[in-house]
């Protein structure tokens, strides 16, 4: 098998190498790929969409339909992870561990035993519990708001600088994942429940598809944001810019929620009680 793989891979590489001799040279501004469609994007993109960041303009407007399905791909992955991994009926754990927060005493409660009320004095902990670490905990907690602010900046400033819904959404999702890593999954799911992530993932995409659909209802083609000009009381070019912002917000919402959802399912193997 290995030898077969090696020969096959070498053959594939030889084909690539052979074809690379006919490639246009790297970085040639006159290569066909850099002329035909792309020249017009660069020249007219700003005029037609009022967005200086051409990647954002092409992503969310010229090829906005692609991007809608790009967000759908990630939604599909989120739902797929949930669908494949989530386990509801599981055997009740034999022991439950509770830690008295002030003293650090750990209670082991046999199955059927009386459990402490979920109060401020006791917290339920994992089997593989890592001792409470003040530095990690506080440092992560301190970073989270700033990271989230940055995520919002990346989403909303995507018109003028590198960024946009996907990038900002991932950063936002990463902040919640950071909390889950530095504390534990149980406390994080209390802050950001599974249900919320499922809702937000659909709702974010709903904003995108709904914006597109609204354009259709207003009499233009699907995703033609210039139709929103009447609603937003701006000229059609500006309406495109606003439409792009709207869908980027939707994408940001969906992506952050889905990243968190996927993390929850993968990290706990669908049990949602303890990390791996």
């Amino acid at each position: 098998m290995k030898r077969f793989a090696f020969i096959g891979v070498l053959l594939f590489g030889a084909v690539l190498l052979y074809s690379s001799f006919s490639f246009p040279p790297l970085g040639d501004p006159h290569a066909p790929a850099n002329r035909h469609v792309s020249d017009d994007y660069i020249r007219d993109g700003m005029k037609e969409t009022a967005v200086p960041n051409l990647v954002t303009a092409v992503l969310a407007d010229y090829r906005g339909y692609d991007t809608m399905f790009e967000a759908t791909v990630i939604l599909a992955a989120g739902i797929a992870c949930f669908f494949l991994l989530r386990r509801y009926r599981r055997k009740p754990a034999q022991h439950r561990l509770y830690r008295h927060i002030d003293t650090g005493v750990i209670l082991i409660i046999e199955q059927g035993g009386k459990e402490p009320v979920d109060s401020k004095e006791f917290e339920r902990i994992d089997y593989h519990w890592v001792p409470f670490d003040l530095v990690v905990n506080k440092a992560a907690g301190l970073m989270v708001p700033f990271l989230q602010l940055f995520a919002l900046y990346v989403i909303f400033h995507g018109h003028h600088s590198p960024g946009g819904g996907f990038q900002g959404g991932v950063i936002f999702g990463a902040t919640v994942i950071l909390l889950a890593i530095s504390r534990d999954l149980r406390s994080t799911t209390r802050l950001f429940p599974e249900r919320t992530s499922a809702f937000l993932s659909s709702a974010g995409l709903f904003i995108y598809a709904g914006t597109g659909f609204a354009c259709l209802l207003l009499g233009s083609n699907l995703l033609d944001y210039s139709a929103l000009a009447r609603l937003l009381a701006v000229d059609p070019v500006m309406a495109r810019s606003h439409g792009i912002l709207l869908v980027e917000i939707g994408v940001g919402m969906a992506v952050s929620a889905i990243m968190i959802w996927i993390y929850y399912n993968l990290a706990s193997a669908g049990r949602y009680d303890e990390g791996l």
């Binding site: 994007y41 010229y62 906005g64 339909y65 083609n221 944001y225």
Partner: peptide, 13 residues
């Protein structure tokens, strides 16, 4: 032919 987002084919989808 349906032009998505109202752009003409080689530029839009």
């Amino acid at each position: 032919v349906y032009r998505l987002a109202g752009w003409n084919p080689p530029w839009g989808i």
